[in-house]
């Protein structure tokens, strides 16, 4: 069980001593019971920090503020930024470090272990407690406890947890400056369980499935926006080039390749999501945020899981495992699979 007061004290202390310039964490929001991301800069604000099952956001995103601008440039004079990170979030920070997005000394990781549970899936909760819109959520051992107008409702965490948490490989943040909570044995689904089930389906069925999913995409780009790894200055799906300067010539602008059109059409949606999956290969840490935020419920984790499992099985590569690893597609081994090549 995490002692929230200890976490708050820690946050206040490192702000007080000036060890960090800001702490990115969660506080109570006004959208129902959900927590919301916040960056605090004063020690007294630490009292507003929370930790509960609605802390689903991967806050590593905010370390990459607004397309490749390190957060510390924006906040308080070059001091490191602290981030409250779950196991998956800490793996995301590791990948950002691997990619030299900032240095290890620029970030202070306040690890929070999900211990024997994980974070809440609001869509599942709506099925488990239909018609109930709780005012608050808390961890309690193997359960989530919800405060409702009719009193407390306990739900086994397993029933209302995110799929990503059921399949979590490492709920205890390995990369940390300080960590709260225990490393608890977990007994949920095996990693890649849903992926393996999906792969059993025949090819024609898989295609029908993905076609239906992608035809639904509205190209709101929430999956891209919420992803800490989607920090490119310019993305193949943007209809204009975001890195133009007054010096960019008309010819350069006109010559920009339109790989994927803006239209939310089947082919363009598939092009977008496949490109994204490939670009995240070896980088995606399965925080599952893309799937959570998708307003039309596209199972994006499946795609990313596929790439992650291939990286692991074919190349022995585990994203977010170590700062010292080279990127998956910037490295190779002599015995990489090549039987498919004629």
């Amino acid at each position: 069980m995490i002692d929230l007061n200890a976490l708050r004290t820690q946050a206040a202390d490192i702000l007080e001593t000036g060890e960090v310039g800001a702490v990115i964490g969660w506080r109570r929001g006004s959208r129902g019971m959900a927590a919301e991301p916040v960056a605090i800069v004063a020690p007294e604000e630490a009292a507003s920090l929370v930790w509960d099952p609605t802390c689903f956001h991967n806050l590593a995103l905010y370390l990459v503020e607004e397309r490749k601008k390190p957060a510390q440039r924006q906040v308080h004079g070059g001091k490191p930024i602290a981030i409250v990170a779950k196991g998956c979030d800490a793996r995301a920070v590791t990948v950002l470090l691997q990619e030299n997005h900032f240095g290890r000394d620029d970030v202070y990781v306040i690890g929070v272990s999900c211990e024997g549970t994980g974070v809440l899936d609001e869509r599942k909760l709506a099925q488990v407690l239909p018609g109930v819109e709780p005012d608050g959520a808390a961890f309690d051992g193997d359960n989530f406890v919800f405060a409702t107008s009719e009193g407390e409702r306990r739900v086994p965490a397993r029933e209302a947890m995110m799929d990503r948490c059921l399949e979590c490989r490492n709920a205890h943040p390995k990369l940390n400056n300080v960590v709260f909570g225990e490393e608890t044995p977990r007994d949920f689904d095996a990693p890649f369980a849903a992926l393996k089930r999906f792969e059993q389906r025949p090819a024609a069925e898989r295609w029908q499935f993905w076609q239906r999913q992608f035809e639904r995409c509205i190209r709101c780009f929430a999956c891209r926006s919420v992803c800490p790894m989607c920090y490119c200055d310019e993305c193949v799906v943007d209809s204009i080039n975001l890195v133009v300067t007054p010096e960019t010539t008309a010819a350069e602008k006109a010559d920009r390749v339109r790989w994927i059109e803006r239209s939310a059409s089947r082919a363009d949606n598939i092009g977008y999501h496949m490109t994204r999956a490939l670009h995240l290969a070896g980088r995606c840490v399965d925080c599952g945020e893309c799937e959570r935020v998708c307003p039309v419920n596209i199972p994006l984790r499946l795609l990313n899981n596929k790439m992650e499992r291939e990286a692991r099985e074919a190349f022995g590569y585990e994203p977010g495992a170590s700062i010292d690893l080279p990127a998956l597609v910037a490295s190779f081994r002599d015995d990489d699979p090549g039987q498919f090549i004629r």
Binding site: A314, L328, V329, A330, F332, D334, D336
Partner: peptide, 9 residues
């Protein structure tokens, strides 16, 4: 070697 790995994916 890079092509082999990348295009395998």
């Amino acid at each position: 070697m890079h092509a082999r790995r990348k295009l395998y994916l």
